[in-house]
Design a protein around this nucleic acid. Sequence first.
DNA 1: CTATCTGCAAACGTTTTGCATCTGT
DNA 2: ACAGATGCAAAACGTTTGCAGATAG
Lengths: 132, 132
Amino acid sequence: METYRLLKIKLTPQRLAILNYLNGNKSHPSAETIYKAVSQQFPTMSFATVYNTLETLLNKGSIRELKIEAGKKRYDYDIKPHHHIICIECNKIVDLYKDYKIPLPEEITQEFELINKNIEFYGTCQNCKKNN
Amino acid sequence: METYRLLKIKLTPQRLAILNYLNGNKSHPSAETIYKAVSQQFPTMSFATVYNTLETLLNKGSIRELKIEAGKKRYDYDIKPHHHIICIECNKIVDLYKDYKIPLPEEITQEFELINKNIEFYGTCQNCKKNN
DNA sequence: CTATCTGCAAACGTTTTGCATCTGT
DNA sequence: ACAGATGCAAAACGTTTGCAGATAG
C-alpha cells in the first residue's frame, strides 16, 4: 500500500484490486486474465480500466510487457531483470533471475550499443516428461 | 524452385509469390506486410491465402513464428537457429547466428529439460545513436 | 479426377478510443 | 474543485473460419 503510493497515481479501488492481483503473481497474466480475476470482486470492472491501468503502470515502468505468447500481450509486475523458461507442452513459465554476460560478435558491437537482453528458454517440465 | 518442391505442397502461383517474397527476406515481416507486398503482383490475393500459406509452412517447419512485436505475429523464412538484436529507437532488427551455451542453475535443470533458447538483444543502432 | 487451394465475407479475439459521469487528492 | 479515472459501447486491429468455385498434380 505504501509502495503503491510511490507510483504517484490516483489509487482508485479498481487500481488497487489490479495491483493486488498482480503483486507477487507469478502467472504472467494477459489483460483478459486480469480482467476476469478482478471482476470477481468488482463486477462493474471494465476492460478499459484494466488496459488503462496497465498502460499507466507501463509508463511508470512498474510493469513489464511480455511477448511470450504470439499475438497476445502478457504482463509482469516483477520488473527485477529476469528471464523465462517455458514448457513447450503445458506452457508453464518459471522465472530465472540470473544476469548472463553474453559476448556479441564485433560486427554487432560495431553496429549496436547493447542496452538490454531477454532470454527465453524452452523445454519440457518434469510433469510433462513423466506423462509421455 | 527446386527447394520449394521439397515442401511437398501444391505450388500455386500465390504460394510461389509468397515464398519468393520471403526467400532471403531479412525484414521479419508480419502477415499484413506480406499481404501488401504480394498483392502488388497479385491484386486478387486474400488474407486467407496468406494466413493459410503461413500456417502450412509453419506446420512443415519451413518458417518460424516470431514474437518480437507484442500483440502481432511476425515470420521468418530463415529457420537456421539464430537470435535477434533490435534497435529500441527505430526497431531495426539484425540476425545473430551464434550458438551460445548458457548454463542453467540446478533448480531449473531439475525441473526442466532444455530443448531450445531464444535471445533478444536490445540496443541502439549507429544511425539512432548519431541522431541523438 | 480429386484432394487441396483460393478468395470472399463474416466471425472472432484482443486492444484502443470517445465520451459522459464520477472520484481521489 | 478539478485533473484525471471509470464504465460503457463502438471501433479498430490482427487472425481465423466456412464455403462455393477454381486448380495443381
